[in-house]
Design a protein around this nucleic acid. Structure first.
Lengths: 260, 260
DNA sequence: GTATGTGAAGGATTTCACAGCG
DNA sequence: CGCTGTGAAATCCTTCACATAC
């Protein structure tokens, strides 16, 4: 069943590598902070430190966008903010719907990062009739029955799924059928979508499990290098040495955003 | 300041590549579902479909764990569940604390994925004195003052930060000083941590921005290939063709989990 | 002099394709 | 004969190191 299809390059988008795209938001955030402090220019070194990456990577990333820096000086903060925003498509306004207004959905609705730039919560949708009309984050919750109408009326192309796992695929199908082409999935399920629809997922338990793997490895090394310290129930001693920012979690993302 | 340090290989953990580690939880989830349906064995093809990856990748991933399959037959579901659980360190119990019990923190506390396997919410911590004692998800919230004591008493090595961005670094510092060596950060900030501490981050606005990038690109291609359709405010028409599972969001993670 | 921009080198990850075992 | 396990090829990503421009 089509596993060994010729398979398009999938990654790389009009020249900009996926790994770079995944870091642009980080740079943008650091730049926005600088902009608010009225800092006029930054060097790759400084900006890289603020974003938690190394400077060579940052320069390479920016080189895909064009030559926006000045040699011997650095980058103009405002100009870069604009260029990255434009590249990410944040100069336009993206209406998003959140489906599933439980604790998580409510948290997402209240999250300030939406309004920050480019995104607007167009509607909150929940299957529970008792929730209908109740305002969350100042927006009245609407019933799932309205889903298709809401999508179309608002021209929504990005949907956030925060439902229980069992409902996610069904919600996803309806979103896609109504015209949504990008989905952010918080439900712990693999979603099946048509060609041309992007899915990204955020999954607490996966992240925890990855941490547990490394945590276990640390414990193992401890008793290996330090010649079997206190046996099992040992409380890991806090390390002491400080170190500069350094890379972090799911940056170095190679998401394959599945243009399937 | 020390960006160009010699820098250890960073990735690859005792032979298992980071990219593989990031997928093990996906396989585990798919296998658990099969186990619950009492399916005795699966082929790499079937399991790959369920996990949303391709079968060659899955086989390669499993090859790092050892030879747990049977040629001509497939993999024993129960056995694989056990092996992956063990590899991920889920056969032991990891107490975690959640700091910042707002909407998001409450959502995380209520999330069933914790109890599922290996993780246990040892404590909920919040800076608001008014929250102290109030039960969330059946667990009483404790005040930040208690943080160090809680970490030590419970031997907590994994902390979840769900505070506002402004408080995250400070909370992080205290967690680390108290002995936490793995942090899952939901606050939109880059955390600075000492050597030996792992940080992973989950960031809604970054995910949305990545989706927006691809969404914008789709719109551009539309008017490029389909010879300039309706100009700007065009509501994207829903695609039609169905396709099999296919890769998804932040799987193909290359997280660099910063053993810094 | 200083910091960007970038070929080239070096790693890591994915995919191929098939040998080899049940 | 079917499906796993894996060298080898192909890709993608990161890092180096320096020419280049201000």
């Amino acid at each position: 069943m089509a596993t060994g299809r010729t398979h398009r390059p999938a990654t790389r988008s009009r020249g900009i590598p996926e790994a770079t795209v995944a870091r642009l938001p980080l740079y943008l955030r650091a730049l926005t902070a600088l902009s608010e402090r009225s800092v006029p220019t930054v060097s790759s070194e400084e900006l890289a430190a603020a974003a938690g990456v190394n400077s060579a990577k940052l320069r390479k990333d920016f080189s895909y966008l064009g030559s926006y820096g000045t040699r011997g000086v650095g980058y103009d903060v405002e100009y870069l903010v604009y260029q990255i925003s434009r590249e990410l498509g944040l100069t336009q306004d993206w209406p998003v719907v959140i489906v599933g207004i439980g604790n998580l959905g409510a948290a997402l609705a209240n999250y300030g990062g939406f309004a920050s730039r480019g995104f607007r919560v167009a509607a909150l949708i929940d299957a529970d009739p008792a929730m209908a009309g109740k305002p969350v984050a100042g927006i009245p919750v609407q019933h799932t029955d309205e889903l298709e109408r809401i999508i179309e009326d608002n021209g929504v192309s990005i949907g956030v799924i925060a439902t229980p796992a069992g409902a996610a695929q069904q919600v996803c199908d309806r979103l896609v059928a109504a015209g949504v082409t990008s989905i952010l999935n918080f439900a712990p399920t693999v979603l099946t979508v048509p060609d041309g629809v992007d899915v990204r997922k955020v999954d607490l338990s996966i992240e925890l499990q990855i941490l547990a793997f490394h945590e276990q490895r640390k414990a193992g090394e401890e008793s290996a290098s330090a010649a079997a310290a206190a046996a099992d129930g040992a409380v890991p001693a806090a390390a002491a040495r400080r170190t500069p920012p350094a890379e972090q979690g799911p940056d170095g993302d190679v998401p394959a955003v599945m243009p399937a």
